[in-house]
């Protein structure tokens, strides 16, 4: 909770005043698919990511008219060190995790964040998918 929720809260708390003053800014908070749907064995992680999802909507409402967009992303397993760690923790190989996705593989980071950070997404705030 300290890292996943309070960390996001502190980031927003100190970013937003600067962005509101300059009347421009995008905040992208890292939630997860576990912030939308339940997953066995993920009660703490899921609760923290659910909190990020709603904090994001609150922030979006508060600062929309200051042209500060606040958006959460909800990735599945992404090819990162955290996925390696999760794979060990839950005792499922990366190949098994690949097969849980209809596209047959884990995702790759960054392009969605770029889209949300730049002006291509200038009318999106609060949610990109409900």
């Amino acid at each position: 909770m300290s890292i996943n929720v309070t960390g996001v809260f502190l980031g927003m708390k100190h970013d937003v005043p600067i962005m509101a003053e300059q009347k421009n800014g995008s905040i992208i908070n890292a939630s997860s698919e576990a912030g939308i749907i339940g997953t066995p064995g993920h009660v703490l992680y899921g609760a923290s990511k659910g909190a990020v999802r709603i904090m994001t909507k609150d922030g979006a409402m508060e600062y929309a008219q200051a042209d500060v967009r606040v958006i959460s992303i909800h990735p599945g397993y992404i090819e990162t060190a955290m996925a390696d760690y999760a794979s060990e923790q839950i005792g499922r190989s990366k190949e098994e995790l690949d097969k849980t996705y209809l596209l047959g593989r884990m995702g790759k980071p960054a392009k969605m964040v770029l889209f949300l950070a730049c002006d291509d997404s200038s009318f999106s705030t609060g949610a990109v998918s409900n």
Partner: peptide, 10 residues
């Protein structure tokens, strides 16, 4: 992908 100016965040 919602492009809604925050409409559904309310």
């Amino acid at each position: 992908l919602l492009v809604d100016g925050g409409y559904t965040a309310q």
